[in-house]
Design a protein around this nucleic acid. Sequence first.
DNA 1: AAGTGGTCTAGACCACCTT
DNA 2: AGGTGGTCTAGACCACTTG
Lengths: 233, 233
Amino acid sequence: MNDAPRLAWIDVRNEIRARILSRACAPGDRLPRDADIAAELGCARATVHRAMQDLAQLGLVVRKRKGGPHVLRDPMTRATVQIPVTRREVEARGERYGHRLISRRNAQTRPAIMDRFGIAEPVGMLRVRALHLADGRPYILADRWIDTRSAPGIRDVDLSRESANEWLVRNTPVGRVEVRFSAINAGPETARQLATTAGRALFVIERTTWTGAAPVTTVEAVAAPGYHLAAQS
Amino acid sequence: MNDAPRLAWIDVRNEIRARILSRACAPGDRLPRDADIAAELGCARATVHRAMQDLAQLGLVVRKRKGGPHVLRDPMTRATVQIPVTRREVEARGERYGHRLISRRNAQTRPAIMDRFGIAEPVGMLRVRALHLADGRPYILADRWIDTRSAPGIRDVDLSRESANEWLVRNTPVGRVEVRFSAINAGPETARQLATTAGRALFVIERTTWTGAAPVTTVEAVAAPGYHLAAQS
DNA sequence: AAGTGGTCTAGACCACCTT
DNA sequence: AGGTGGTCTAGACCACTTG
């Protein structure tokens, strides 16, 4: 009725993890070869491989071609953040989504923006500022730069109907993404747009994406007071 | 000289991704079965499986037992945050790490703490407040609760020598982790401890860990002004 | 140069989910 | 109830990394 077989590779992973945590294999130590572990635990090497793949992703071990897998010295907390399209995020809270285009103009990238993309020369991009609303209240203030070479179609989009956010997600290949979180004090202008008071602590998400090596877009999203972001795993 | 074979499963993944992005398979559509894709691309089903595994992790497709894989309606931005032990973080910046124990006492969990752990009844835990320093300057102010049932050894540790942070990482099994980020205005007390002014926007990392279903520790880490966190992928 | 992980194949069984 | 993904096995070759 029990004796559950479960997934074998998970058992293997747990066994190896247990050894690591129990200090049977100290941090920095070399672990046995996949093949040896397989022989010892009586399973195929592929099964051990699957387990090690998971442990590596969890940040517990490092695997190299020779020298075998090593137990990482100090594992970091590793968590995955999922940032949905703002409209979905609002709707998931059971609130009505709204969106207001503030400005849309072409501009040369300033140094701060070039830094985010990692480019040395100024480029003409499309700069879009917009306010996302939840139940009519300000939710997120977005200041976005879009490289029209990577997303030419955006020129013909009515950004007062569909947010740049959403259009890009739907029409742009997903390449590399880099996200930065920080906290800022609301300036007078930002405070006005987010219907709060100057000086309030605001959560900032800075997101930059590339397609291959080509910049696509970068956005600084300033959230209204009370916003928080969760990550799991 | 070229015709690089590379990893087959990556090619398969790219091919499928390309179809998704080119709208050959619209969001919400059902994709062909693994076996069919394998036949079409001339590889083993396991190879397609590996590719799909990656696409699922990237958040592009969902796979179900029957009904085959589906293209996700709106892919979220998915990024992985790595939070090292504070000492390593400081040392990685090339600065000298320091650590000051502020207080250490037993206390009953307040409702806010019980919420984080998802428990209903108050529990006696060890509460540790500490300040992490970088080059002598305040870096992170930590307010931590530790369930001594899950980490009994902590009672005998001199927390003025080794931070609770570090001891727990080294001596506690890694289970589920939940992280929350937010922004707060510095209160007078916090401002004093972080050597800044009241009202400054501060970045907050709230981290809670369990072993199985048992609470281990939760910490509210308030970072000094200027702190930011990066996530990739 | 050799060891080791990374990968691919082919075949098989199982468990879950939808129909 | 049947289809489909999830997994395991066994064997093989390759390529990267280290000594």
